[in-house]
Write a protein that binds this DNA or RNA. Structure first.
Lengths: 164, 164
DNA sequence: ATTTTACGTCAGTCATGTTGACATATATTT
DNA sequence: AAATATATGTCAACATGACTGACGTAAAAT
């Protein structure tokens, strides 16, 4: 941040720093998803299935609309993936009790096992990175990522993430 | 980290914390790519084109192999995207001087303009998040993301990211 | 002279996203 | 009670970006 170059041209390093941050996110995300992708291939599932299993596992009884809202995809896209997971017995639907139009989503026992298996890989990766980086770094990581989330629904999203 | 729950079950909070970190990355990445995606749609380009333009812009004269190595996709996949960008005049190839089998990649003037336009959105987003989070947080962000990068080629990747 | 490397290309497939139209059951509003 | 709105499902067509496998060509390395 204080450097010969930045003394001459204060914008230079800043831009370079931002570029690095962007690439870092790209590479980290790439490797972060590689583990789950690998496991899911054995089930003929993809990343889309993973996301569904993950969010349903974390929000048992959530409705289809809520899931659509999180994933930001069309219901047609979701339905192919979700239908698949239901047909193959990883997720089950129950009619909403208050509003019987709703379909509430739950993991089956099989679904829970898959969720655990896949998320373990990812959690182990993150855990190692956290351990190596230390507590302060983790706090910074969280702070920055929160800031990257779309301001317009940041509260909603963070509410969901930090939920419990 | 020190809490009623974690006193009873030290694994609980840890797992929850990791889960949050994972979702945070998911949401941040989603919103981080939304801006560029939006702009690129006007050109009938997608995220794949963006990545190519980004990395070629950052590594002028890089070869096709190097690009393949970064993106981790097949040459057939790359070729559709790359061929498209070349045909439409955003990227040009020149035969390697030392090794004339190589095709070295460069942005055209038009390509550079698009790269700037798209990356500005992303840089602005990251810049705001960095400013709001503060320098220490940024250091932590970098530390953690570096730790998420696949250990086996971490040095290679970081070498590229931190290159200049 | 042979083999390896860097790149390109044809052809087919799959996963995951999109739009648009329409159907059905249940809630809500008038 | 009738009309409207909402939650969900479904059919069909299409785009993007990944994949595999096979084959070709030019240049470099052995």
């Amino acid at each position: 941040m204080t450097d010969v170059k930045s003394a001459n041209n204060p914008l230079f390093l800043r831009e370079e720093e931002l570029r690095q941050a962007i690439e870092l996110l790209f590479f980290a995300y790439r490797d972060f998803t590689a583990g789950p992708d690998q496991i899911l291939k054995d089930y003929n599932f993809g990343r889309a299935h993973h996301r569904v299993i993950h969010f349903v596992g974390r929000n048992e009884g959530m409705t289809v609309s809520e899931l659509l809202d999180i994933l930001r995809i069309t219901k047609q896209s979701l339905n192919r993936v979700l239908g698949n997971l239901i047909k193959r017995g990883f997720i089950e639907q129950r009619q909403g009790e208050e509003d019987r139009r709703q379909r509430c989503l739950y993991l089956t026992e099989e679904g829970r096992q898959l969720e655990q298996k896949v998320s373990r890989v990812q959690r182990d990766l993150v855990a190692r990175a956290f351990r190596e980086a230390g507590g302060d770094a983790v706090a910074g990581y969280r702070k920055v990522l929160m800031g990257l989330i779309d301001e317009d629904n940041r509260d909603t999203v963070l509410g969901r993430v930090l939920k419990p």
